[in-house]
Design a protein around this nucleic acid. Sequence first.
DNA 1: CCCTGATTCGC
DNA 2: GCGAATCAGG
Length: 229
Amino acid sequence: MSWTDERIDQLKGMWEKGMTASQIADELGGVSRNAVIGKAHRLGLQSRPSPVKANDAPRKKPVTRKPDTQGAEPRAAAPAPAAAPSSPTRAEADTPPFDTQDESTQPLDVSAPAPRPQQRIVSIGPGGFMRQGPGDQQAPIPPAPPRRLVPAKPSPEIADKTSLLDLTEKICKWPMGHPGEPDFHFCGEKVNPGFPYCVEHCGRAYQAQLPRGTRRPPPPMPFGGPRVR
DNA sequence: CCCTGATTCGC
DNA sequence: GCGAATCAGG
């Protein structure tokens, strides 16, 4: 399988939706998990919460790969000049998608949030409510960061539709639309007893449920793919 | 063990 | 550019 534009598009979409590389590979079919990861990196889609990334240790381990077929090692031994052992080598692994401030201001000082001595925080908005008793002497939590708050938008458009909070064991959880879109909601029908979906969507969900590794040509799954609606 | 993503490097 | 092999954390 080759990476057609469409497949790349699907990969991007799924990757950004948080699907794991295995799921994506399985969904696309014809590619391995490694292929997905490799492609994602080549595409520049980088670093989502990864299990192994927190460490800063220089991983200089000449792994012996391809033990066979190569009589001599053609690679010239790279004289890795161990430059700065203690300095933070790489840029921070996964910087949140917030605006990066000018790095020239402070080299590295995240420890001090500079709390106002006199200011007393009594509460923060609905998103991060916090209290402080009369005897409290210090603000244990830094003031509400100037984060860009995403307003919870209960769009009237979905007022009568089934939202995430409306889901129970009895109603169909089949997603309608795409997450993040204003009209994203769930089916909401009465479920097929014993299944998370209604009868109709059970048909969609389980029809092409073939054993792992089996190619699935183009099943009308609710995620990924071009947005045809 | 399973899973995950990251990285390397022969092709 | 691709992806198997490998690494490494959970």
